[in-house]
Design a protein around this nucleic acid. Structure first.
Lengths: 199, 199
DNA sequence: GTCTACATACCGACCGGTAAGTAAGCTTTG
DNA sequence: CAAAGCTTACTTACCGGTCGGTATGTAGAC
């Protein structure tokens, strides 16, 4: 996991943070105990409570930190002055890169995406995922306006399909040790979808 | 949940089965306790152990039963004598229909797909998911052989993309109360992917 | 009298969380 | 400038509650 948490943590807090990310990614929220985090991080349990307040507290901290990282990455790309198609390729590459570089965080975020019902913590996350979809939609709309995509292209459908393919490939990557995500694959995928979506 | 478990269960066993499916779908394996299944099904805890042996036992029974149902549905379609493209459309419709009709089971299967590491129970499931991908690949290969798809079409990539889009839409559907999956959507999606994949 | 289909009552282990204390540094005050 | 008090960053030891699982019993069918 090469992901750097954006806020400045003390050393101890950072260790707790990373250990928790790793464990939650492997076993999900309910599959991990505070004892486990404590033992694996070498930090006593009350110390974890001192920094994060509760089990949900760590969870939320991980969500916030990860979201901040991912969203800023995509918005950066959205503002570069290249064609809409190139933006889609760059975003796909970025997404693949994040998945490969920080598999723990990616896996963790995958577990969040599953709509387990009673988890109120996750509303924030869902909203942001929705926003990510909107970034895609904005890029596609841009391409329609500029004539790069045909006027009949359907931004909603396109954003859904692209997001779906991203997620699916991340999934695949996280299930295997072989490296399947690559820059070439990102280009191929967008090429195919571009052809299909661009009526 | 309108899904019928294929084996003949006693009344009591069937109730446990359905209650467990519902709860696991909502909260995942670790989020559900045997007490909860017991109380919500009105069956005492030792009775559950009598029928299913362990918590993992129920889980496995649900996986087996669901897989059997899904796979036979797709294989049925694969053997119908229509064009490859029509098969893809039919499979997509079938997938959407399963998602809408049996959301509990769909959600349950979604939670399985996340590669949480230490769950040995899931190897069987993964293998079968892989087979589902192979059914898609077979259909696409068929289409290439018959000239329906261009010779340059790439069955692996295509199967991945289609499977990914399925999963993504199921996901979307399970997160909302609005009905977003429809036969028209299935046709549109395959139309787009067909154009894109068919060089 | 044996087998099926359950129920009552209990087990030790582990859960999330906390009360109470402390050692080290920093800040205020006589 | 030093003693007193406050704050930060923890630790030891424990809590009531819940976990997955089971030993034992029994009522009815065959």
């Amino acid at each position: 996991m090469s992901y750097q948490s954006p806020e400045k943590h003390t050393h101890t807090k950072e260790i707790i943070f990373r250990t928790a990310a790793h464990l939650f990614a492997q076993k999900g929220f309910d599959g991990v105990s505070m004892r486990e985090i404590s033992e694996q991080s070498g930090v006593t349990k009350p110390t974890i409570y001192y920094y994060f307040g509760s089990k949900e507290g760590i969870y939320e901290a991980l969500i916030d930190s990860g979201l901040q990282h991912v969203i800023s990455s995509f918005e950066e790309i959205a503002h570069i002055k290249v064609s809409a198609k190139d933006k889609l390729v760059m975003m796909t590459k970025k997404f693949f890169q994040l998945t490969v570089d920080a598999p723990d965080f990616s896996k963790f975020f995958m577990t969040l995406a599953i709509p387990l019902s009673d988890n109120t913590v996750l509303e924030k996350f869902r909203k942001q995922m929705f926003n990510q979809g909107n970034i895609l939609k904005t890029v596609i709309n841009e391409g329609i306006k500029s004539g790069e995509f045909g006027a009949a292209a359907r931004p909603d459908l396109a954003a859904q399909i692209i997001g779906g393919v991203w997620q699916h490939y991340a999934w695949q990557q996280l299930s295997t040790k072989k490296k399947i995500l690559s820059e070439e694959l990102a280009e191929e995928i967008i090429e195919i979808l571009f052809r299909g979506l661009n009526e």
